[in-house]
């Protein structure tokens, strides 16, 4: 009989426990991804019953030389930068503000987190009403700047439409990232903060020299998740364009993928764009992780 140590037996149980997750991942994530990659080499049409023809790299050549694709990349880059930077910065500021309050912490967290539990469709519909020419958006901004009667064209002007989609996204997800920061700040040992106070550090110095360096893993996690989620954003842009907003300013890659597959029925070209988006997300994540590995602070 072969000898098995306690560690080895424990590891076997580990395999048993992770098997369901691995099987689900293989079936619902890895297989569709590999299948999508395989489809990119064919001219597959969504409704066609005929076998697709092998076209090699022709779909890649088409997409990479397509003006519409690069316009989509530009729209994605604008949206991602516009959403991910404020999400990371403001959620950190709000996280710090909440943890330094003596009262009302839970109420503030609840208030900020509530939009995150709304479905994106409901959120977009609420904001459609706000951005209606006769809605609250124009009324509020015109009251604030004393500019009665100005239509800010929230849903029709190129730049305003981009601002509108970014605003909704930040409003919806800022609470989620704030909660992550609140948890990260709560993990910092009280003794470290007390030591800083005893050493005569001011509040600003404590934040900048103690809390911020110790929050680097949380900041990295928040920035990666916020960036990836922004790159994958779809529903707000989709709903706005369904309700009459122009496509081009908000034609992010995900929306282009959807329209190419569902409207143009060209599933192979949609798969090419999906694969390129996946590749881009992977590279950006690796770059972000590498840049954070360089200066990890431990007290």
């Amino acid at each position: 009989m072969k000898y098995t140590g306690i560690e080895k037996r424990k590891a076997r149980w580990g395999y048993v426990f992770v098997t369901p997750a691995v099987v689900l991942f293989l079936m619902f994530s890895l297989y569709p991804m590999l299948n999508a990659l395989y489809n990119t080499f064919f001219n597959m049409k969504l409704l066609s019953l005929k076998p697709p023809k092998f076209v090699g790299l022709a779909n890649y050549a088409y997409i990479l030389t397509s003006e519409a694709f690069w316009k989509s990349m530009k729209a994605t880059a604008i949206f991602t930068l516009g959403a991910f930077i404020p999400l990371t910065v403001f959620s950190l500021v709000l996280g710090l503000y909440i943890t330094t309050r003596n009262r009302g912490q839970k109420a503030l967290q609840l208030m900020l987190y509530t939009p995150a539990i709304l479905s994106s469709v409901v959120a977009a519909l609420i904001w459609m009403l706000i951005f209606d020419p006769r809605g609250l958006g124009n009324a509020f901004v015109n009251f604030l700047f004393q500019t009665p009667g100005i239509n800010h064209n929230w849903l029709t002007d190129h730049i305003m439409l981009q601002i509108s989609t970014i605003t909704i996204y930040v409003w919806k997800y800022i609470g989620y990232f704030t909660i992550i920061y609140v948890t990260g700040i709560a993990k910092i040992p009280q003794s470290t903060l007390e030591a800083a106070t005893i050493d005569g550090a001011s509040a600003m110095q404590t934040v900048m020299r103690v809390i911020m360096p110790l929050l680097k893993p949380t900041t990295m996690m928040v920035s990666i998740v916020a960036m990836l989620n922004s790159l994958k954003s779809f529903s707000t842009q989709y709903l706005f364009t369904q309700r009459g907003a122009p496509l081009e300013p908000v034609n992010v890659v995900t929306l282009n993928i959807y329209n190419t597959a569902m409207r143009d029925l060209n599933i192979s070209r949609a798969c090419v764009m999906s694969f390129l988006l996946f590749f881009m997300m992977m590279v950006l994540t690796l770059v972000r992780m590498k840049s954070s590995e360089r200066d990890v602070t431990v007290y």
């Binding site: 020419p133 006769r134 124009n138 009665p148 009667g149 100005i150 239509n151």
Partner: peptide, 8 residues
């Protein structure tokens, strides 16, 4: 009919 630029 408009209220400023906003069509009513």
């Amino acid at each position: 009919l408009r209220n400023g630029e906003i069509i009513t």
